[in-house]
């Protein structure tokens, strides 16, 4: 019994379980799992271009995932990375599409505007929590919808590009584009920005007083309150920082990948980021690895659809399954911890 649960709760067990469930999903979709998996792997890692696509997805996921991980570490369930990413991306796209500046300055300004936009959007939820005690799960989620319609309104009203279809800003001039990291792929140096942020977060958590206070607030809010930690400040600061990171991510999609802002530029990166952050144990380094794993699923999923005719939505089913398996893992782990504690204190 014990061995069985520890098997399921182990990472290997999680992978085996997910692969098994994926196979079932493929069978239901009418494809041989062998074809499906080989398409997934070849399509995501089978060559330079494939790896490039995987890393493009990795980069897009890494920013919001790091943001979500930061907030979760501070005990705040930021479900709103999607909206924060959108607002940041829109500001970046508005600047890049309409303002002339020296190219390097323009790129830096776009990334900064991304941070400001996302940070502001996160700070709203932070302020609502600190001042009005509004549950941040609800407020961040609701702000996603506000962001979705707000960007749609702003873009169609004021920012529409000349040859745009749908809600798109004009294309950025070519010299506003982030340089390509791997030639002949779509991968920009945006992923380096993401890795730098991961390193900065690691530093924040391990070396700084603020990071320490955030972790205490996340692990034991009452202990934080009683030990001179200003929880209101931690709350809005964490959500603002979390949003800023997601917002920079939005800006890198604009300057590094799509080269314009489109209101539908995210296929739900902000939501997938929640799973990525949890798979990565909220640890910046592990979140990088988890993002790569999910990048494989995203890029490979498309290849799977293109070659094995498994609908790409199957990938989202799989992502849902991963979240489920993880939740179960956490539950099992927590229960056994509680049993041991009860035993130790008797």
């Amino acid at each position: 019994m014990r061995r069985a649960t520890s098997f399921i709760s182990g990472p290997l067990g999680a992978i085996v379980l997910v692969v098994a469930l994926m196979s079932v999903a493929m069978l239901v979709a009418g494809t041989s799992p062998i074809d499906g998996f080989s398409a997934l792997i070849v399509g995501s890692l089978g060559g330079r271009s494939q790896i490039g696509e995987t890393l493009v997805a990795t980069s897009a996921l890494l920013f919001p995932s790091l943001g979500v991980a930061l907030a979760f570490r501070a005990g705040l369930f930021n479900i709103g990375a999607e909206g924060q990413l959108l607002v940041g991306a829109m500001l970046a796209g508005a600047f890049g599409g309409f303002v002339s500046a020296p190219p390097v300055v323009a790129v830096v300004v776009m990334l900064v505007l991304g941070a400001i936009g996302g940070g502001f959007w996160g700070a709203i939820a932070g302020w609502m929590k600190a001042r009005l005690r509004a549950n941040e799960i609800i407020s961040t989620l609701m702000l996603n919808f506000v962001a979705q319609y707000l960007t749609l309104f702003v873009v169609t009203q004021w920012l529409l590009g000349p040859s745009a279809t749908g809600a798109e800003t004009p294309w950025l001039p070519n010299n506003y584009w982030l340089p390509t990291l791997i030639p002949h792929t779509r991968l920009s140096i945006g992923i380096l920005v993401a890795l730098a942020i991961a390193a900065a977060l690691q530093f924040l958590f391990t070396r700084t007083v603020l990071g320490y206070e955030m972790r205490v607030a996340g692990e034991a809010p009452e202990a934080a309150r009683r030990n001179g930690i200003n929880l209101s400040r931690i709350t809005w600061l964490s959500l603002a920082l979390s949003g800023a990171i997601a917002g920079v991510g939005g800006a890198t999609i604009v300057t590094g990948e799509l080269h314009r802002f489109n209101t539908q530029l995210s296929p739900g990166y902000g939501y997938i980021a929640i799973a990525v952050a949890l798979v990565g144990d909220l640890d910046p380094i592990k979140v990088c690895i988890a993002s790569f794993f999910f990048g494989i699923l995203e890029a490979g999923g498309l290849a799977m659809q293109a070659s094995a005719q498994v609908p790409k939505d199957a990938i989202h089913v799989i992502e849902g399954l991963i979240i489920l398996v993880l939740a179960a893992r956490r539950y099992v782990a927590q229960r056994s911890e509680r049993v041991e504690e009860a035993a130790a204190s008797s």
Partner: peptide, 9 residues
Amino acid sequence: HVEGLVLNF
């Protein structure tokens, strides 16, 4: 447990 220490630290 609640006010003085962070058990996971």
